[in-house]
Every structure is written in structure tokens, then in C-alpha cells.
Design a protein around this nucleic acid. Structure first.
Lengths: 156, 156
DNA sequence: CCGGATTTGACAACTTGTTTCCATTTATGG
DNA sequence: CCATAAATGGAAACAAGTTGTCAAATCCGG
């Protein structure tokens, strides 16, 4: 019943891989009726949650992925009328992005549906277990965080 | 201190996404000295842990990804001399795969280094938290498991 | 034994994300 | 003010995985 902390940790890692795949797949079906995908939903969420309209590099930093990856999804979101660019007074080439009216409406509906889903799900777990899970996942993320390490920038 | 189970669950989902990316990145660096990547390491592990030499579709089913994805990595592992194909008495076109001598040696070293890593890491967590994390992650995986749903195969 | 369904590998296109390179814009220090 | 460094978008190549198609091999029901 207590096989070894190290072995449980290995299982946590495998669970994270499996769950990541399941979440993306589930999210694609969840967003399909709104013409979105998991990736675009995540970028949309980052834009929606930002206090002010944000530039692509700001969104990328907040999401923990590269700016080029975000740029692709943002360009698609603009094409679909979900997101709108506006001039950046501080940078001519780097516009700010915010949701359009349609984007706000789509986001509102998705957030509502998501809220219903997690509430239905949350009955399966205790608060103590959920908080413990957060502790473990956060601790693992901190331990594996991309540390600049010896990236001090090679002195030329 | 207890904001809402639903909100903690949302944070668990975001943590899974973030951790998946961090794990893959970390694994790539971890395997680099042995000429492997995270993806190939995972496939190699599935082959190593199988009781008997396995076919590509068997490995894929056990890993929860598509056979085509596994096939790509297996072909690369064969090229690198990590994995070896042998005739499948039950299927002429679908060979069985097992580790080569070199593959067994590489696997042994990687497993040893991984073991050291998780043991060092495991000091940061309590057994209770780790088991709670497993309960939550397993429960979420079960709830989102790709269920055939209405895929009963359209009657033609 | 035969014929159709299923499995399987090969191949190609697509999605998501990363890395790399280049050109332009912005920032900074003398 | 100007030269150089940093930030930024665009494009291309790559990695990993998915889906789809095709042909060969296997399986199964009659």
C-alpha cells in the first residue's frame, strides 16, 4: 500500500503524459461547435484573462510557450473574427490583441460550459486530495522549471 | 484557503499542460547523451517493459497513442541499433520488436539515472500527497477516457 | 475453400509547437 | 545624435503526433 515514493512519482509522470493527451482530445471536441481547437481556446483564454490588450510576446510569456507558437494561433483567431488587433502606441510593428464582440460571446459560453463540466467533475474528489495534487504538480513544475542554468549568455 | 473545488480542478488542468511541456523538455536533455529523445525513450520503455517482444500495434495500445506514431519512433530506434525486429510467426508483415544488447545497456543506465532523479525529488513530497495526486490524476483520466460514446459504428 | 471484413505497414497531409534565420523596429549608451 | 544591442514579426525547417488512403496479410463466416 506504500510501494515507494519514487515509484509513485514515476506514475505521476506517466499520468501527466496520458492526461495531457486526453485533455487535448477532449478539448478539441468541447470547442468544435464553436469553431475552435484546444490550442486556440487556450490562447483565447490568455487574451481574455489579460487585464489589458496584450502583444504576442506578452501572451507567450504568460502561457509558457514560444512567441512563434502563439503568433500562429493568434493569426488564425484574427482570421476567424474571435480576436482583434489594435495599434500598439509603444511599438509600431507589434500590435495589441483583444477579443472582438463575437469573441467575448464565444468565450462567455465556453467558460460557462467549462464551469459546468468541472463542477460535475469536482464531486469525484475531496478538497484535501485536490489541494495535495496541486502541491505535487506545482512542486514538480518548480523542480523541472526551465532554469537558465548555464545560459548566462556566452561572453564573446 | 478553500476557494472552490471547481477552481482547483481548473488549476490542475493547467498544471498538467504546463508539466507535460516541462517534462518533455527535461527528458530531451536527460536522454541527449544517449542519442535519444523523450518520445523515443518512452517507446523504448514500453518495449523494455513488455513481457515478450511486441508488435507495433501492441506497443501503441499500451502507450495510448496511434500505431503510426509508434511506428515512426520504432523505425528510428531500429536505425540507431537500440531495437531489433524479429520475424513474427503469427504475422508475416508485422514483426516483433525487442531491445538489442546495446538497447538493454542504454535502458539500464537510463533507468538508473531516472531512479536517482525521482529519489532526489521524492524528498519534497509526502506519501499522502503523492497518493492523493495519483487519485486525482487517475480519476480525471478515467473521466476523460476516450469513450466510444456514440461511435457504435454507423450501420450502413 | 472462398470472399469480405479486419489488421497492418507505408506513405502523405495536417496540426501544434520549437528552433533558426532574416529584416525591421525599438531601446540604450556613448 | 548615432551606433549597436534587443525585441519583434515572418518564413522555413524540424519534431511529434493525428488522420486518411492504399495495398498486402490475416481472419472469419458461409
Amino acid at each position: 500500500m506504500n510501494p515507494d515514493k519514487a515509484e509513485i512519482l514515476s506514475n505521476v509522470a506517466l499520468s501527466v503524459f496520458r492526461l495531457n493527451g486526453l485533455f487535448i482530445e477532449w478539448g478539441n471536441e468541447f470547442c468544435l461547435p464553436h469553431g475552435l481547437t484546444s490550442a486556440r481556446w487556450q490562447v483565447m483564454g490568455a487574451i481574455a484573462l489579460a487585464a489589458q490588450p496584450s502583444s504576442v510576446p506578452q501572451i507567450a510569456a504568460c502561457m509558457g510557450i514560444t512567441r512563434q507558437g502563439v503568433q500562429k494561433q493568434v493569426n488564425l483567431l484574427v482570421e476567424e473574427g474571435i480576436v482583434q488587433s489594435r495599434p500598439n502606441p509603444a511599438h509600431r510593428r507589434s500590435p495589441l490583441y483583444a477579443l472582438t464582440r463575437q469573441g467575448q460571446e464565444t468565450y462567455r459560453i465556453l467558460r460557462q460550459r467549462w464551469q459546468q463540466h468541472v463542477e460535475a467533475l469536482s464531486g469525484d474528489f475531496s478538497v484535501a486530495d485536490l489541494e495535495a495534487a496541486i502541491r505535487v504538480l506545482s512542486g514538480l513544475a518548480r523542480a523541472h522549471a526551465a532554469r537558465p542554468e548555464t545560459n548566462e549568455k556566452e561572453v564573446p
